[in-house]
Design a binder for these strands. Structure first.
Lengths: 397, 397
DNA sequence: CGATCATGCAAAAACGTATCGGCGATCGGT
DNA sequence: ACCGATCGCCGATACGTTTTTGCATGATCG
């Protein structure tokens, strides 16, 4: 009998209580631990008979491999961090809400399809919340619009963990890769659209914070104004304050040099501009053209429907995840170069995604029409307006 | 010299490459592994001098403890699963969107505050996506509106992992605890409000699916109609289809027995009802009163602003998390009874949360007014609702 | 002055898996 | 019938912590 041999079994032979381990399966199946592991993972060279037998026994015992042990052994956890920027106590701001939700949804889906799961973690907030970061084993991280010198990103990269950012990183943040829209092209194309619609003085509703999105969009606006020989007319407000939008919209329309068209950088600006216009007796689009950047579907049914710029967060989320997983699996399987702690790799790649201008009644004086204009990424062309008949709401993109 | 002694260091003395382990810290600090662990975790009895010294050395080496190893040893991962129901390929449906986003936001925040992180996982979809579940070590799981015989929930409970559900579980699903609104009280109160506003025939926009929310709300409506001696007037549509809402709203207003007030169970119903009313030349609120269940802020700025029923997903999210973490830490620290695999504990507690009716112009004939009515939870409960005032109100709304 | 005790630290045993190397047995070829 | 190759399986080790046990050393007390 092999029984005598099995006195070797580590320390006590006692039941580990509760769940069955790989040892129990091995014992019950009358094979070794190695064989069980190989059979369940499809490795090694085993006859199908043995494989099936082991699988059957494992099922009967309700065996579930310990994720922790596997992670410890293999070094891969199958987990991807998703940082949410926090304002004050609460994660993410209201203006990012719809964008973030959609982006997270797509990212979750893409990650799951490739066998990874997302874990939500707070961005740097110099509190002691950092320890939650080191309490979870991450294969990689996606960070949304990181601040210029995000300590978390720096630390992760130092540990050799791939980091992909949504939004071109400012400063010299050493992310592995990044994905972003071509904000300048988007804003330029959108302003051209408004000008073509008869706007003589286009105003801007922008934010006071200095994130990449706000910065790029604003400078694109200023540049356009300079080219168009128009004085800039804009109001900036703290975008993270859900109430400030309405006030800012009011301020903009109260100015002596009141614009006859407005672009709002943030989600709530559309409805707030509409409400403000009503207060001032301005008709949209007759007296005021309105466009805002939003992912919300409500703008299709407002009175009038409002033209929106969609950043296509779904596409961004998917792209970010694929870039990240490629980096993760490439780094592991690539073999050759071992990632030493000191060597900080510069951005290995990036991807610029197109935006989409969803044209509705609010941005054109002529009666009703509806079209979609896609600003392609690399093409710097002012406005290759491709009118497409109203598409049904696509599943993802 | 202790150098000779250190030949004992496990197997090869080679650098593990890359990151520094606890051994490296011990060697560098000239102490044992035990001392390092104790110093960093604040355990054991060490003089402050040693503690500081070890911490300094650890910082200098950039030491980060391995989460995987810690999890393997302690059995706690600090991770909480958050299941998202999937429709087809994509996680969560559009109608749950705002609710889910807000609930997840609050849950994330609450979990982080107690040192846990959330990991997003797909609900059962009989595909082989289940394996991602066993690839992550979970301390507990919150599941949103589980189906009556969710296999994932059953399996998790079998493994002794606490499961708390958002939404009262149907069937005999053995969740650890659950949180839900008092949907019947909410609907009843809301219909009373509409009747008080002058409605003679109240219609309902409901869903075709059989989840708890839809079911409870619809029967509450039917019961109310019976009590009020009013014929029910409702249209049901597949709520997961983002386009179907508008069609259903149209159908409802096209009926010969057209209602003079409508309650819509899902988020987009408000704007869609408004649009449909415009098409039929009905003025809101003069010809038609409108209320819908939504968490979206846009209804404050529509024309007219629409009265909404808020389920307060933020509160639900925090309550769910606190219930779950209490269960996790109670099960561990409670000592006494060891959770054997066979014993399936019945629901250990539940919490019924109040809803909030945000009254705006769309639901009252008399000019403008704005008020908030809170339907208290235990007030109307048909069954002896044992509301457990477990956790402190927390810094959430 | 000897016994007791608190103090400061270390050795070693787990936790549950993946994987490298190897060992006997069978097989095919000459 | 002998020999190398292949097949089927196993033992042992490492992954990096936490925790239990226990050994010295000096201080305190009777």
């Amino acid at each position: 009998m092999t029984a005598a041999k099995h006195q070797v079994t580590r320390g006590t032979g006692r039941r580990t209580s509760g769940r069955a381990g790989i040892r129990d399966v091995a014992a019950a199946a009358g094979v070794s631990i190695t064989t069980v592991s190989d059979a369940l993972n499809g490795k090694g060279r085993l006859p199908d008979a043995t494989r099936r037998h082991v699988r059957t026994v494992a099922d009967r015992l309700g065996y579930r491999p310990s994720a922790a042990a596997r992670t410890l052994r293999t070094g891969k956890s199958g987990l991807i961090g998703l940082t949410v920027t926090t304002y004050g106590e609460e994660p993410f701001t209201f203006t990012e809400f719809a964008y973030f939700a959609e982006m997270a949804r797509a990212a979750t889906s893409a990650a799951l399809a490739r066998g990874y799961a997302l874990v939500i973690l707070p961005a740097a907030s110099q509190h002691r919340e950092f320890d939650v970061w080191s309490n979870v084993a991450l294969d990689g991280t996606v960070v949304i619009d990181p601040s210029d010198h995000d300590p978390v990103v720096t630390e992760l990269v130092r540990q050799g963990i791939p980091v992909v950012s949504d939004g071109r990183p400012g400063g010299s943040l050493p992310v592995t890769a990044w994905v972003d829209n071509d904000h300048e092209a988007a804003v330029t194309g959108l302003l051209d659209h408004l000008a073509a619609g008869g706007a003589r003085r286009i105003g801007l509703l922008t934010g006071t914070s200095t994130d990449t999105y706000t910065r790029l969009s604003t400078t694109a606006y200023l540049n356009w104004c300079e080219r168009a020989r128009q004085d800039p007319v804009y109001e900036a407000y703290p975008a993270h304050d859900p109430c400030a939008s309405a006030v800012a919209a009011d301020r903009l329309l109260a100015r002596p040099d009141r614009p006859d068209a407005v672009y709002g950088l943030f989600d709530p600006n559309g409805t707030d501009l509409l409400a403000a216009a009503r207060r001032y007796g301005l008709r949209v689009p007759d007296d005021l053209l309105v466009v805002c950047c939003s992912e919300s579907g409500v703008y299709a049914t407002t009175e009038p429907p409002i033209t929106t710029l969609s950043l296509k967060p779904g596409r961004i989320g998917t792209a970010v995840i694929h870039l990240l997983i490629d980096a993760i699996e490439g780094a592991a399987g690539g073999g050759g170069k071992r990632q030493t702690a000191g060597s900080v790799p510069q951005a290995q790649g990036h991807q610029v995604m197109p935006t989409e201008l969803i044209v509705r009644a609010s941005s054109q004086r002529s009666p009703r029409a509806s079209a979609r204009t896609t600003v392609p990424a690399p093409a710097r062309s002012p406005r290759p307006t491709v009118a497409v008949p109203r598409t049904p709401p696509a599943a993802d993109q």
